[in-house]
């Protein structure tokens, strides 16, 4: 999604207040943005805490800063700077973490982002954007650009080969009809799930909803149509490349319980961390954690039979 991200930001380069800070990352990807922004493209070096605080100071002066790094270096290393300098001061800094979930694969655990939006949602004022498809990046970037409060954009790798038939971008989108329960998916893993489910009969596949935005001032409301479908469903599944703790599975079920909605039999496909202590590609980690397409669909099918 880096190409879509870069293109979308280049389109915004005419905004005088727009500044971009990178923690020395973006080689072979962000050069067009560097050219478009000139001195407003700032390589802050390998110093993420300073980068986030500098961005907060720039926002305080009326700039529209974006801060970019590999996801864990963006939200984990400078967490106190995000909490104190951005969120307590309610400054519109746009954080961008590249490589959500296990996207950095065999680069190792330090480069994975399994708890990013859970941690950031606890700060309450940040709105989270998790594009599921390459075509989501542009609309998400434009929405984030217009925000006057903090944002976090979690980028991954586009997985759906043909995005032409997708409905237009929305925080909640139904991307496939189905009669065997409701499945809510967060992130690019939606691409593989959608391709697989399209090959199943309507009666034997869940309705698939993709959730792309959550948190911030609007909290976690579910649209009426999603609530209706959940209430009529025999099964609810939530898929996310994120740990259970603070993830959207927890938040959505909490929302349903708090508002007195019926919760059907529930599957939460989420990251467990590193059960075997071994490392591999993103696909390998998904398999090990039971969040690959085969494990997900065999899991919900087994539940139906039971």
């Amino acid at each position: 999604m880096r190409a879509e991200f870069c293109d979308s930001l280049v389109d915004l380069a005419g905004i005088r207040e727009f500044v971009f800070l990178t923690g020395d990352l973006g080689f072979m990807a962000l050069e067009p943005l560097q050219s478009a922004l000139g001195p407003r493209f700032i390589n802050a070096g390998v110093a993420e805490q300073n980068m986030v605080s500098v961005a907060a100071g720039m926002a305080r002066e009326g700039c529209q800063p974006w801060v970019y790094s590999i996801a864990p270096f963006c939200y984990a290393r400078p967490f106190e700077q995000i909490r104190n300098d951005i969120c307590i001061n309610k400054l519109p800094v746009r954080l961008v973490g590249n490589g959500g979930g296990y996207a950095y694969g065999s680069m190792g655990a330090t480069h994975h982002a399994l708890e990013d939006y859970g941690v950031l949602l606890s700060l309450r004022s940040i709105r989270i954007y998790v594009p599921a498809f390459g075509c989501d990046v542009g609309p998400a970037v434009r929405l984030i650009s217009d925000r006057i409060e903090p944002s976090y954009l979690r980028l991954g790798r586009t997985e759906l080969k043909d995005e032409k038939s997708l409905p237009p971008y929305a925080p909640w989108r139904k991307v496939l009809e189905g009669a065997a329960g409701v499945m809510i998916v967060i992130g690019p893993i939606a691409g593989g799930i959608l391709e697989y489910a399209r090959g199943l009969l309507l009666a034997s596949r869940p309705a698939i909803w993709v959730l792309t935005e959550f948190g911030g001032e609007s909290g976690c409301p579910l649209p009426a149509q999603v609530l209706q479908e959940i209430s009529e469903s025999k099964q609810l599944s939530i898929v996310e490349e994120h740990v259970v703790e603070g993830g959207m599975g927890q938040r959505l079920v909490h929302y349903l319980a708090l508002h007195g909605h019926k919760i059907p039999p529930f599957h939460h496909f989420s990251a467990q961390g590193y059960p075997s202590g071994r490392y591999g590609s993103q696909a390998w980690h998904r398999r090990e954690n039971g969040i690959d397409v085969d494990s997900i669909f065999s899991g919900i099918a087994a539940d139906e039979k039971a």
């Binding site: 005088r16 207040e17 500044v19 001195p39 407003r40 700032i42 805490q49 300073n50 605080s53 500098v54 961005a55 907060a56 100071g57 720039m58 926002a59 305080r60 002066e61 009326g62 700039c63 700077q81 300098d85």
Partner: peptide, 14 residues
């Protein structure tokens, strides 16, 4: 201090 640096950089750029 780093926030102040950001404020100064913003003023210089703008």
């Amino acid at each position: 201090f780093p926030v102040a640096v950001g404020m100064a950089l913003a003023r210089q750029l703008r």
